[in-house]
């Protein structure tokens, strides 16, 4: 099977890999690069568990081909905060108990980060609209929405 050579910047690190054209970015991240924080929930763009940033824009990694990211910048959950220095969204998800099983959590955090990068002060309805592409079956979204709003507040001093 012909494999294509691809170079990209993933979480700030110059990365190269070989992949088949039919492999999605999600498959490449998980199976080729070992970045398993990005999850597969539906594989057709309807659950948001595979949310990543592609050149700064929020995408579903299952709806992108690995070969398409040649020359691009990709940010996954592994590129957002780390255990020693959590992103305010990660901290807020912990404090607000905004996760139960946690499998949708990376997608929600990546998606919410894309929102807050663009709009630092969304209201509740705006957060709900933006996150409508991310399904959670455990929480009823209440604590997720609260966590995103809290993170937006928490990030305010850092911006000033």
């Amino acid at each position: 099977m012909a494999r294509t050579y691809v170079q990209a910047t993933i979480n700030g690190v110059a990365t190269d890999f070989l992949c088949e054209p039919r492999q999605s970015l999600l498959e490449v991240l998980r199976d080729e690069l070992g970045l398993t924080g990005t999850k597969e929930g539906c594989n057709n763009g309807n659950c948001g568990a595979c949310s990543v940033l592609l050149n700064g824009r929020l995408v579903n990694a299952c709806c992108v081909l690995g070969v398409e990211i040649d020359g691009a910048e990709v940010t996954t959950i592994e590129g957002i905060g780390n255990p020693d220095r959590l992103h305010p969204l990660q901290q807020a998800f912990l404090e607000e108990a905004a996760l139960q099983c946690g499998v949708c959590t990376p997608g929600f955090i990546v998606s919410a980060k894309a929102l807050l990068d663009k709009e630092p002060h969304p209201d509740e309805q705006r957060v709900r609209y933006w996150l409508a592409g991310n399904l959670c079956r455990c929480t009823g979204y209440d604590k997720i929405v609260r966590a995103v709003l809290k993170a937006a507040d928490d990030m305010e001093p850092a911006r000033q």
Partner: peptide, 9 residues
Amino acid sequence: IGGTAIQSR
């Protein structure tokens, strides 16, 4: 059309 992630593409 789709959610925000779909609309990026």
